[in-house]
Amino acid sequence: MDVSGQDAPRSWLGTPPPEAEGRSSEELPVPLWQHLPGVLTGNVQSFINWARSNSIWYMTFGIACCAIEMMATGASKYDFDRFGMIPRASPRQTDLMIVAGTVTEKMAPRIKTLYEQMAEPRWVLALGGCASNGGPYHEGYNVVDGVDKIVPVDIYVPGCPPRPEALLHGVMLLQEKVRWVQSAEKTART
């Protein structure tokens, strides 16, 4: 479609103001939205947030049985792809870390390293009871009582393990958070 406004039909240009009679269309004080149909105005931040919320790439990072539910959610029946979520094997390329399982003391430094390797802005979703607060292994000798002891967590999804619907709900809550919380604040917080 030609959107320059010169050769467009008059029908969507609107009625020229009365004092503009007799002048050419380039000189008319027509607002931008009249020249470019389908244009929405807004600020850049909300546009970026909208784009980010619909392309949350997550890390393929399963550390216990909740990873099975994460795989099921990523597979065709529940289909993470319809949220624009693609699994990435490198933390450099991911926006979201789904901590799917029990965090042991030996794994904790690795998780912190992976989190620090992710580019900002980054989000963390604690999937299941173990990642939320230790779950059935709460206060076990080798279990970190929740991944929020080592990295900041945005969304907690309870369950042992949570069903894929619960994980999808958590992801939709995270999308809300990405859309309505300014990413600059998120960057400053971490």
């Binding site: 003391e105 030996k106 206060e139 076990g140 000798y141 080798n142």
Partner: peptide, 22 residues
């Protein structure tokens, strides 16, 4: 093999406290 290299004690001994290093 399973625990960090600087771990103190042997957790599956009967006299090891359940809460471990805490």
């Amino acid at each position: 093999l399973l625990l960090p290299d600087d771990w103190q004690g042997y957790p599956l001994r009967r006299d090891y406290p359940l809460e471990g290093p805490r």
